[in-house]
């Protein structure tokens, strides 16, 4: 997305800049020339970001990928074993379950977060009393450190002390404690709910910022042309916030697939591995078990899954265009 520099974009920007007269050599001129040259300026401007990513991400990542092809353990380099780790994982029931868990967890959570986040953004994108408070309050779940909010959910889902159960009991809806984290499917649902709670503000604030950029005049003009709320939404709001929506969804998908802390604190992947995600499994194997190569392979497996998720999210949203 974002590369519209195909045909149909020839007007680029070089137009107004006249090539500086040859022979002028002052530093300022050189700087000016640099600033006006797309090629050089472009590279200068991306260099800091690239340098950071190269040193602190690309390089360790390359090491990580290399590890996944070795049988190395913590503190011992190991030797190259080709696809052995991947072959091993392919036959591993726990790993296969983890793949399914991840798809389910990410799929359901991202859709819910998108829908709820969008609804919330639309709700607060207007003038009302207490707007400031509401907009600040809705960010709270996103702000509080996950390690601590996970503890809260851990307690909210307690088998005996759950406040949810207490409320439902008081309302006469259930007559015995709910086994939130002891039953595989309930545990999955409970973790998805916690993830949605944390992620909704991320969507809401991103989409709200997007909504803010939609010029009011467009709505007024459309209203004058007799467009109802739905067509206004469909033909003005939706296309205009599309770029933001895509970015937010894609990144949320990535964060959800890579989720670690919430699961680790609330269930540690249990019951019976029903809530293991790639992150928790990789951590368990690489760090706790010391099988660095195999853990790296689990993590590397994330890549194709992420690419698939991202492609789906991207296609779904873009189809509307």
């Amino acid at each position: 997305m974002g590369r519209q520099d195909g045909p149909g974009f020839p007007k680029v920007t070089a137009g107004p800049l006249q090539a500086p007269l040859p022979g002028v050599r002052s530093g300022q001129e050189a700087l000016g020339r640099l600033v006006e040259s797309h090629q050089a300026l472009g590279w200068v401007m991306v260099t800091p970001a690239l340098a950071l990513l190269a040193v602190f991400l690309a390089y360790p990542f390359a090491l990580g990928v290399w590890l996944s092809f070795t049988d190395s353990r913590i503190a011992s380099p190991g030797r190259f074993v080709g696809l052995e780790n991947f072959r091993y994982l392919a036959g591993d029931g726990v790993f296969r379950l983890t793949v399914l868990n991840t798809l389910l967890y990410a799929g359901v959570a991202v859709v819910l977060k998108f829908v709820l986040g969008f609804a919330l953004a639309l709700l607060v994108n207007r003038e009302f009393r207490g707007k400031r408070f509401v907009r600040a309050a809705m960010l709270l779940p996103w702000i509080v450190p996950t390690s601590l909010s996970a503890l809260v959910f851990y307690w909210i889902y307690d088998s005996q002390f759950s406040v949810l159960t207490w409320v439902l009991r008081a309302a006469g809806l259930v007559d015995r404690p709910i086994n939130y984290l002891g039953d595989p499917n309930l545990a999955r649902a409970a973790l998805i709910a916690a993830n949605v709670w944390r992620g909704v503000p991320f969507f809401a604030i991103g989409l709200l910022a997007g909504l803010q950029t939609v010029p009011r005049e467009l709505y007024e003009a459309a209203a004058m042309d007799g467009a109802g709320p739905w067509s206004r939404f469909r033909w003005i709001t939706w296309p205009l916030i599309m770029p933001v929506a895509v970015v937010v969804t894609v990144f949320s998908t990535i964060m959800t697939v890579g989720d670690f802390q919430l699961i680790w604190i609330v269930t540690k992947g249990g019951p019976a591995n029903a809530t293991h995600l790639f992150g928790t499994l990789a951590y368990q194997r690489a760090v706790q078990g010391g099988f660095l190569g195999e853990g790296a392979a689990v993590a590397v497996f994330v890549l194709p899954v992420l690419v698939a998720c991202v492609a789906v999210a991207y296609r779904t949203l873009r189809r509307e265009d």
Binding site: Y157, S159, Q160, L181, G182, D183
Partner: peptide, 15 residues
């Protein structure tokens, strides 16, 4: 008691 299948270390303390 029901629920032990989801218990982590702190649960039994509380119960």
């Amino acid at each position: 008691i029901p629920g032990v299948a989801g218990w982590l270390d702190p649960h039994n303390n509380r119960a």
